[in-house]
Simulated assay, not measured.
Amino acid sequence: MKIKESPSRKVFNVFNILLMLVIGFICIYPFLYVVFASFSDAAQFFQYNGVLLAPKGFSTAAYKEVFKNGDILRGYGNTIFVVVVGTALNIVLTALGAYFLSRKNVMLKKPIMMMILLTMYISGGLIPSYLNVRSMGLYQSYWALILPGAISTMNLIIMRSAFEAIPESLEDAARVDGANHFVILFQIVLPLSKATVAVLVLYYGLAHWNDWFAPMIYLQGAPQKYPLQLILRNMLIDNQMVDSASGGNDQFLIFETMKYAVIVVSTLPMLIFYPFVQKYFDKGVMVGSVKG
């Protein structure tokens, strides 16, 4: 039987719906503004002031200018290599460390964990890190972007908590069947922690995808290895495309919309990837907050 709502309840529901719509629009409008601006005609957009609810004179000239730069596709390739290889190595090393720390019979487990936790608060700084990378022969190498941050302490704690939540009876049964630690980790523990692994793939992948500072430091003198974010940063901050062109007024106008096209190009792959791991996100994150 349908319960009849009072007039005050109806007003309250309508107010809530309108409030959520306004908040939702406020949240999504910056992204829509960037997309609309990237597809706008440069001259019309430059003269327009106010709320942008549609492209001002549809044009793809900004995207043509972006992809006219041959470094963009090479940067995509470099970034994809770092993201794929780096994230795979991150997950494997984090899983090995989390499995070790989640065992109950490990000697000196607490002191080891305390030393690992200290790395979250104490860092050697940029200069020691730079000298360390150079001394290991990683300078101007992709590995300088992957190995120094191979394990995140926070992600290690999240995965360790997920491993500790797995019933010991499953591992005991595997040991009876003759399984060693590697079999238990990769065939039992990791498959049962898919939600956490998916979340950490997102965390590590986003970190690699958005990183431009480390490449700027460690890849100086090797522009052919620049990832996408560093190339786009150079295009926006240093105005490389404008400086290499004739420098006329038309080029200045196109640069205004090109800035927004660069933002779309750099963020779209992650926006496409995120929905595939979103269903695991809440469960994977909550594991680390329940047991620490």
Rank of each mutant, 00 (worst) to 15 (best):
W143P: 05
L271D: 00
A95N: 02
I127R: 03
V82A: 07
G77P: 01
G284C: 07
L117P: 01
A222M: 07
L118K: 02
Y76A: 02
I91G: 02
G24N: 07
L131D: 07
L19M: 13
Y260V: 01
P227S: 04
A173C: 09
I166S: 07
Q229L: 05
K109Y: 03
E168P: 01
G24D: 11
A245C: 05
V84T: 05
G24K: 01
V35P: 00
K279T: 12
L268Y: 02
K279M: 06
I166K: 06
V92F: 15
Y204W: 04
V201P: 00
F186V: 08
I17S: 08
S40R: 06
I3A: 13
Y29R: 01
V85S: 04
G292E: 09
P269I: 09
A43M: 10
V264N: 00
M136H: 13
A214Q: 11
F12M: 15
M154I: 15
L18S: 14
F39Y: 10
T196S: 14
I122Y: 10
P7G: 08
R9P: 04
I3V: 13
V83K: 04
N13Q: 13
S129R: 10
L202E: 03
Y121R: 04
G149S: 11
F100V: 13
Q47P: 01
T94E: 06
Y130L: 15
I158G: 05
V106N: 03
S40N: 04
Y280N: 13
N249Y: 15
K283F: 05
T79C: 01
L147F: 13
P215W: 10
P191Y: 08
N132K: 12
D172N: 11
G137H: 06
V34W: 01
A174D: 10
L52F: 00
F67N: 02
F273K: 03
E256D: 00
I272N: 08
P128W: 06
R9S: 15
P30F: 03
S141W: 06
P55L: 05
A150D: 02
S161H: 04
L126A: 10
V92C: 08
N105V: 15
V35S: 02
S129N: 15
Y203N: 11
G57I: 11
H208D: 00
A54K: 08
Q44L: 13
N69Q: 09
F58C: 07
H208E: 06
V35R: 02
V183E: 12
Y99H: 11
N78E: 00
N249S: 11
V84R: 00
W209F: 06
F45M: 13
M136Y: 15
A144V: 10
P191N: 06
I146C: 05
E168D: 15
P215M: 10
N180S: 08
I127N: 03
S102K: 04
G125A: 08
E168Q: 14
L202R: 05
P111E: 07
K4P: 03
L232A: 10
I263N: 02
L126Q: 05
L200S: 05
A42H: 03
Y260F: 14
M154C: 11
Y99P: 08
